[in-house]
């Protein structure tokens, strides 16, 4: 198979990727092994995307790809061709996302703040998925985002609030 990509992508060589990051079109050449997480942080300086395990287990690097939440550490930049990636930097203060961020502040839904961008991206997606109906549902579907400071009950409070519910 002689695709354009393969021609571009000899061992360690660059892969052409054209995609959107926070609404900005990017056309780049990257090494095949570069993860979306490292690229966003190191090349674009979007350090709101956090590395907590680099093994897909903590959720700190949660971003949206075509509106769906994923962990950026287990995705190659090369796989993002044609997609739209949204990080916490891309949602600051905007609409419902802003409401989630405000609610996190009001409810003290974080402490050290390291997992927070991932929690917020996950929460934004959660509300969009229609899974913020009950506290139990929020707890289950936010369980992919670890918080070692232990802010979980307050994260639920924030999400209930942002989703327009009554905080218990």
């Amino acid at each position: 198979m002689k695709t354009r990509e393969e021609a571009l992508s000899r061992l360690g060589a660059s892969v052409g990727v054209e995609f959107g990051v926070n609404g900005v079109r990017r056309r780049v050449g990257v090494e095949g092994r570069v993860t979306l997480l490292d690229w966003l942080r190191d090349e674009l300086g979007l350090t709101g995307v956090k590395k907590g395990c680099d093994q897909g287990a903590c959720g700190a690097c949660t971003v949206l790809v075509d509106g769906k939440r994923v962990v950026a550490c287990l995705m190659l930049v090369a796989q993002c061709d044609g997609r739209e990636v949204t990080t916490v930097e891309g949602v600051a203060g905007v609409g419902e996302a802003g409401a989630v961020q405000d609610a996190f502040v009001r409810h003290d839904a974080f402490q050290c703040g390291y997992c927070t961008p991932g929690q917020i991206m996950s929460a934004i997606a959660l509300i969009g998925e229609g899974r913020a109906g009950t506290r139990e549902e929020i707890a289950e579907f936010m369980s992919g985002n670890l918080c070692r400071c232990g802010a979980y009950p307050r994260i639920r409070d924030a999400i209930v609030d942002a989703a327009g519910g009554e905080v218990g």
Binding site: T47, G48, K51, E89, A92, Q101, F104, V105, D108, P117
Partner: peptide, 17 residues
Amino acid sequence: DRVEAPLKVTGAALYPN
């Protein structure tokens, strides 16, 4: 509310790494 909260919820707080 935490005074540094706006930085933490927008990803603007810079941790050492």
